[in-house]
Amino acid sequence: MKGNEALAEAAIRAGADAYFGYPITPQSEVIEYLMRENPADRTGMQVLQAESEIAAINMVYGAAGCGKRVMTSSSSPGISLKMEGVSYIAGAELPCLLVNVVRGGPGLGTIQPSQSDYFQAVKGGGHGDYKMIVLAPATVQESVDYVKLGFELAFKYRNPVMILSDGIIGQMMEKVELFEQQPRSKEEPEWATVGKKEGKDSVIVTSLQLQSEEQEKVNLRLQAKYREVEKNEVMYETYNCEDAEYLFAAFGSCARITRKAMEMARKKGIKVGLIRPQTLYPFPADAISELSERMKGILTVEMNAGQMVEDVRLAVNGKTPVEHFGRFGGVIPSPEEILEALEQKIIGG
């Protein structure tokens, strides 16, 4: 199945109650698939094409505030527009799932794949001290599985979750195993606006506090939640790290290409491993820190000008050299040039 379509099908099967979106290349197949499939007939899931990404994310806010499983998807310029709403969703502590099928930027940039929205996804993007849980699939299978996982995490922490995909995974055809249809939840969480219950206080969904001390309490509560997320939800994979002297760090589709470069290096006798963060927030900082103690150097490979490299450096904290290799603007790096970068920037460096 095509990545975007598999993801859309996964949303239906995950028991999503609603999807609000707006077309943008390279992710329009998500809403096209949903409209074609008409999940209202299958599960009762509502699908609406909004007038803009801004409207779409605020529809997500409204429906999420009712305790429903809601999703939206877009690509980079559209995600920028959604950032206002994401900040409000994080502030009001609502669960929702966002998908960014990243394309090259800044501005209109290019419709080709990129990973240049890493900072936006993990460092904020919108205003205020907040965090999204960010999942980075490397395969169509993972983007399907992360839809289910994403909803689970979103409700577990009442927090927005983003699947940070890219144009490669969105457009790629790959074999995929779809999970069984999950029923739509009938639960009415006590924080959801579903109509005031007699004898109970009305429910208010808001991100506003008038008193700074009250807002600080909100921030402290959010921070405590993020520490829990960091403790419990880190996911990553390592390859060939047992005997490695050097380490690649790469996420998403870029990790697949880097894996190829690793295999080529191994054939040349270079002992290199790979760590692939599957959660970009929470970041596998401890794992990288530990690995760095026995590495002569680390190369991050990213389809951007150097973003995740900053988090790797923070994790490594000077214990070993960390360099970055990237192609950007929609250009996909080849395994050959990744290997060459390893040899020049790390081994020869």
Partner: peptide, 30 residues
């Protein structure tokens, strides 16, 4: 902005200008 203090019904506070979109989201699922 604080209307939800005064109406004793369930309410959501929207971002500036987005209330009709928020209301759309609510009405579509309820």
């Amino acid at each position: 902005v604080l209307a939800y203090y005064y109406f004793d019904v369930d309410m959501q506070e929207a971002a500036h200008g987005r209330a009709p979109a928020v209301a759309t989201g609510i009405k579509r699922v309820l």
